[in-house]
């Protein structure tokens, strides 16, 4: 062992994905925006057109905090950050919103109660689904290489209409990697913006899942283990 040269530490794989992602989106003019991990029911659900009776709001999916009357929760998605930003800032803008999110679900190799999302939104006039597809495909090509194939499918998320999902071919399997769509007019209204004037190109991706795909990691819990046998490989 060489005692003279001081070995460098290892950047956590999730930080690596977040860093690479922000580098790519910075080139597209996206600004990083963060938000609180404890969120209000309004920004996490209401402002995002998620109905009052939606199952995602239930105690078995969302970590509500005591006292329940305060209607505070641990944010379940980074889209809450977008709703805050849209409320406070006049478009046009392009933002990228990395952050820790929480879901009340039993943990196993592919599920964690805490994980990271990195999504974002472009709010502008004269932008449409072709731009949405374009920026997402650009991102995945730069992150995972030119050889990947894409398969877009229709999908449904309360806060977008139309809604889309993207599968990428990795090895010989199709993997679902991102949910996307055009902001629902109700989101603009809830955030005090003119739905007839603006379009919103929104997307969200799970950082943990991207890292698992990119590096071939099979157990999501390793990200939070602090185990150097894991971390030293990165």
């Amino acid at each position: 062992m060489d005692q003279n040269s001081k070995p460098r530490g290892h950047l956590h794989p999730l930080s690596q994905i977040i860093w690479e992602t922000q580098t790519i989106f910075k080139d597209l003019g996206f600004q990083i925006v963060e938000g609180p991990e404890i969120e209000t029911e309004w920004f996490n659900f209401d402002a995002l057109n998620i109905p009052a009776n939606h199952p995602a709001r239930a105690m078995q999916d969302t970590f509500w905090l005591k006292p329940l009357e305060a209607r505070k929760l641990l944010r379940t998605h980074d889209t809450a950050i977008d709703a805050r930003f849209l409320t406070d800032n006049e478009p046009p803008f392009r933002i990228l919103t990395p952050g820790r999110v929480f879901r009340n679900e039993a943990t196993d190799a592919t599920h964690e109660a805490q994980f990271y999302q990195i999504g974002g939104v472009v709010i502008d006039q004269n932008v449409q689904m072709g731009h949405l597809k374009g920026m997402i495909e650009y991102f995945y090509r730069r992150l995972l290489g030119d050889k990947i194939e894409f398969r877009w499918r229709p999908s449904y998320f309360s806060f977008v209409e139309p809604g889309l999902e993207l599968d990428i071919k990795w090895g010989n399997k199709w993997l679902e990697v991102v949910g996307a769509g055009m902001y629902h007019p109700n989101v603009f209204k809830a955030c005090g913006r003119d739905a007839d004037k603006w379009h919103g190109l929104a997307f969200g991706s799970a950082v943990d899942r991207l890292a698992m795909i990119k590096y071939g990691i099979t157990d999501i819990r390793q990200f939070y283990s602090g185990d150097l046998r894991f971390l030293k490989q990165f």
Partner: peptide, 21 residues
């Protein structure tokens, strides 16, 4: 400086903010 980065758990057995379920 040779330090490696870890991501710890938010949830623990004591604190000031309590989860309902």
């Amino acid at each position: 400086d040779g330090y490696s980065e870890i991501y710890g758990y938010t949830f623990t057995d004591h604190g000031e903010v309590e989860v309902a379920k």
